[in-house]
Design a protein around this nucleic acid. Sequence first.
DNA 1: ACTTTTTTAGGAATGGTTATTGATCGAAAG
DNA 2: CTTTCGATCAATAACCATTCCTAAAAAAGT
Lengths: 143, 143
Amino acid sequence: MIGSPESDVREMFRRSGYTLTSQRRAVLDALQDFKGHPSAEEVYLAVKKKNPKVALGTVYQALSVLEEIGLIEAKRWSESPVRYDLNTEPHYDIRCTRCGKVAEIPGLKFDDFAARIRENTPYKVTNTSLVIEGHCPVCQMED
Amino acid sequence: MIGSPESDVREMFRRSGYTLTSQRRAVLDALQDFKGHPSAEEVYLAVKKKNPKVALGTVYQALSVLEEIGLIEAKRWSESPVRYDLNTEPHYDIRCTRCGKVAEIPGLKFDDFAARIRENTPYKVTNTSLVIEGHCPVCQMED
DNA sequence: ACTTTTTTAGGAATGGTTATTGATCGAAAG
DNA sequence: CTTTCGATCAATAACCATTCCTAAAAAAGT
Ligand SMILES: [Mn+2]
Ligand SMILES: [Mn+2]
Ligand SMILES: [Zn+2]
Ligand SMILES: [Zn+2]
């Protein structure tokens, strides 16, 4: 279920109490067109093509609303701005540390880390995420 | 082997080709005294107590040298500056998202992620790290 | 239509980190 | 010892991603 259909988008907004404004719609569309894992800046540039007066801050805000209501996910790597993912199904992404390209890793499934961790710490575990880096096929050729 | 003894420190520097300067020593000492997982800023403040004329940039530089030669490790969480760890044995740390405290999770061991990942992507996997967040016991009481 | 609330554009500000530069240190050679 | 010359340093400017601020615009409520 990549890229929720129109009705789902409306429903998510309705339930959250946020309004589906033209800017938020534009950000969502840009993300859809982009197909990859763009940064806020990249989303901004894409959105600006259709509506040149949208502000970068608005894109950041829209992204965080979209994330909050569960339509997109934010993913972080250490040497990169946050990247956004329309694919909210649980999956892992790997980022090339040479060219920055992000790719999905299909079929990779680990059993829940949180359970194991909970047995070993008095902390209440609220979030775990596996950060994966490497070299993409193209960049490997430069070795 | 937490906090390598003097001879090890010297050996690591010798092999790397970097020189063990008084500033780098001071940064290492500060890290030792601190005992936790301090940020560059915190290391800087600690170092300044004994030598008020060190610059923040020098601390950043020293930390990256120490990391490069393998005496310390840098760890990242999303809402925090990089934190440094004298404990270079493989282990996991959890960070409280409310108060920022970082604690080690002893006895937690996952089998190598990289192998599993490699089977599912054409990327050459160079690095994986598990980011863990939660609420510490103290902060849990505020619930 | 009027009022209240939410969202936006534009731009300034922030925080963590890196880059630049001229001064200083320090090991090795003479 | 001195001189030399690269490594390192302090100080400070620059950088980048992101957040914050504010007045204006848009949307929602009545
Ligand atoms: Mn993805
Ligand atoms: Mn640790
Ligand atoms: Zn690449
Ligand atoms: Zn806490």
